[in-house]
C-alpha cells in the first residue's frame, strides 16, 4: 500500500513536470502561431526567406547525418575491433562536442578559417568560403552532431565481441563482406537510432551555426536562426509559425525514434 502511494506520487510529479516544462510550451507555440489566423500562418511559412532557411537547414542536416554516419561507423569499428595505443584518448576526443558549448565550437572555426585564422590565406588563394557561408554552417552542424552515431553503436559492437568477425575472416571473407553480412545486421537498429538522434540535433542546432553564419537572410540563415531574427523584429506570430515547422519535424522524428527503439528491442530478444 505504501509502495503504491509512493508510486502514484512519483508518477504525478513526473507528469506535472513534463506538462509544465514541455507540453504547455509546445501547445503555446502552435496556438501563438495560429493567433493571426490561418492565412497569416501560411504567409509566414511560404515566405521566400523561410523556404530558403528550410532548404539550408535540410541541406546542413543531410550533410551532417551522412558524414557523421560514415565517420561514426568507422570510428566505432576501429574502437571496438582493434586495440591500439591511444584508444581511450580517441574515445574521449569523440565526446568533445558533448562537452564543449556550441558557441565555442563556432568560434573555433572562426579562429581557424576566419579573417585572422590560420587557414585564411590558403582558403583565399583557392577562393573557398567557409565563414559566413554555407560550408561553415555544414561544418558547424557536423561538429555538434559528431558523437551521436558512434556513441550509439559502440556499446552494441562491444557487447558482440570480435569472435564472429574473426570466424568470418578466418574463412576468407573480405572486410566489406564481414561488415555487410555480420556487423551491419547486428548494429542496424542502434545505427538507425543514432541517425535519428543526429538528425534531430542537426535540425535544431543554433549556437555554433549562429557564430559562423553571419545571419545573411536568404543565404546563410537556417530555420532556428531565421526564427530568432523574426523574433528580434517583433514578428511574433511569424516566428512561432516557423517554429511550428521545427516542432512538427521534431514530433515526426520522435515517433520514428519510438518505432525504431521498439523494433530494435524486439530484434534483440
Amino acid at each position: 500500500m505504501k509502495n503504491n502511494a509512493t508510486k502514484n506520487i512519483l508518477i504525478s510529479i513526473s507528469i506535472l513536470f513534463i506538462t509544465i516544462m514541455l507540453v504547455i510550451p509546445l501547445i503555446a507555440v502552435i496556438i501563438y502561431s495560429l493567433q493571426d489566423g490561418i492565412e497569416a500562418y501560411k504567409i509566414a511559412i511560404f515566405d521566400k526567406y523561410t523556404i530558403k532557411a528550410l532548404q539550408l537547414t535540410l541541406l546542413a542536416t543531410v550533410s551532417a547525418v551522412v558524414i557523421n554516419t560514415f565517420f561514426g561507423i568507422f570510428a566505432a569499428w576501429i574502437i571496438t575491433k582493434f586495440s591500439f595505443r591511444g584508444k581511450h584518448f580517441l574515445t574521449t576526443l569523440i565526446d568533445i562536442p558533448f562537452a564543449i558549448s556550441p558557441v565555442i565550437a563556432g568560434l573555433i572555426y572562426i579562429l581557424v578559417f576566419g579573417r585572422t585564422g590560420w587557414a585564411y590565406d590558403f582558403l583565399q588563394a583557392y577562393d573557398i568560403k567557409i565563414v559566413f557561408a554555407v560550408p561553415g554552417i555544414i561544418l558547424a552542424t557536423i561538429f555538434v552532431t559528431f558523437p551521436f552515431v558512434s556513441r550509439e553503436i559502440i556499446p552494441v559492437l562491444n557487447a558482440q565481441g570480435k569472435d564472429e568477425e574473426e570466424a568470418a575472416a578466418l574463412m576468407g571473407a573480405s572486410g566489406f563482406k564481414i561488415f555487410t553480412k555480420i556487423t551491419l545486421p547486428h548494429i542496424k537498429w542502434a545505427l538507425l537510432y543514432g541517425i535519428i538522434l543526429c538528425t534531430a540535433r542537426a535540425m535544431g542546432e543554433f549556437g555554433a551555426v549562429s557564430v559562423l553564419s553571419g545571419h545573411l537572410r536568404g543565404k546563410t540563415n537556417t530555420l532556428p536562426l531565421h526564427i530568432e531574427m523574426l523574433y528580434n523584429e517583433f514578428q511574433l506570430s511569424s516566428a512561432f509559425a516557423v517554429s511550428s515547422i521545427l516542432v512538427i519535424m521534431a514530433v515526426i522524428i520522435l515517433i520514428l525514434r519510438t518505432i525504431v527503439e521498439y523494433k530494435g528491442k524486439k530484434a534483440g530478444e
Binding site: D163, E164, E166, A167, A168, A169, L170, M171, G172, A173, K181, I182, P185, H186
Partner: peptide, 20 residues
Amino acid sequence: PPSKRGIGFVFQNYALFRYM
C-alpha cells in the same frame, strides 16, 4: 594470411553468425 592457411577454427563460445 589466416584465410589462406586452410584451417578450420571452432571458437569457445561458437561465434555462430547470429543473424544467419
